[in-house]
Amino acid sequence: MTVTSVSAAATIATDQAVLVRGLRRSFGSREVLRGIDLEIRREEFVALLGRSGSGKSTILRALAGLDKGATGEVFVPRQRSVVYQDPRLLPWARVLSNVVLGLEGEDATSRGRLALDEVGLRAHEDDWPKTLSGGEAQRVSIARALVREPDLLLLDEPFGALDALTRIRMHKLVVRLHKRHHPAVLFVTHDVDEAILLADRVLVLTDGRLSLDLPVQIDGPRLRSDPAFAELRARLLAELGVDELSEGAGPGRGHLHFANPIDVPDSEQEIVT
């Protein structure tokens, strides 16, 4: 596989952040990705859904440039950041050092402080990672991704391990940060509601191919009670092979169910922590 910087490929439209053609990946005799074609525009927020084991993380790793065993063509920006499900902080480095890990330049520290400010953790810059709560640690890892000013932000189930209340805060945070820094985003999740709440476009990965590509067209705040929201959810769940009604849990599928308007756009509103 060749991961190439966008600048290297003159054929690519200037508003594209990701171009993938015929991406394939096998583990042993099992072909996990069977020809993925994917385009993501600059500043676009794309969610990727799929069942467990369908290959979502494999796609994300390929875009991050971490997979040396995939075949096909992959064009991505040079500046990329990854946020994993686990915060993956170095336990022996203080919070601020973790944020600026690998950064060079004398302004690294001040940029790191700003990034911590943005996730509401400025006061914790001298803490050891093991003293942070799960949500705090994940915010640090988001700060570590942001401080690199990525053109492509890759998120692999970043809130999978967090409780429902913290997830809601994190959703607002992610939307706000996206509005401010506008990277292209590939957000891997298995939570349909989360995908609809956050993304401009939702992809579904089934049997090694992108089987569905739906824009999220909901005007105004995205409320789970909105009929358009419900319809989209039904379609995505059907694509994922889950019959919403027979599952019996109803909307939210067992999560705490809140009306959750995403209403924190450009305002400098603080996420209460």
């Binding site: 170095l90 890990l101 690998g102």
Partner: peptide, 26 residues
């Protein structure tokens, strides 16, 4: 996984030794 992290944040060889290997070995 720290190895992968080092790839993602672009740590060089010396950076890996100093920021990951030596502290982990301590």
């Amino acid at each position: 996984r720290y190895e992968e992290l080092a790839d993602v944040v672009g740590l060089g060889r010396w950076g890996r030794v100093r920021r990951i290997v030596l502290p982990a070995a301590l």
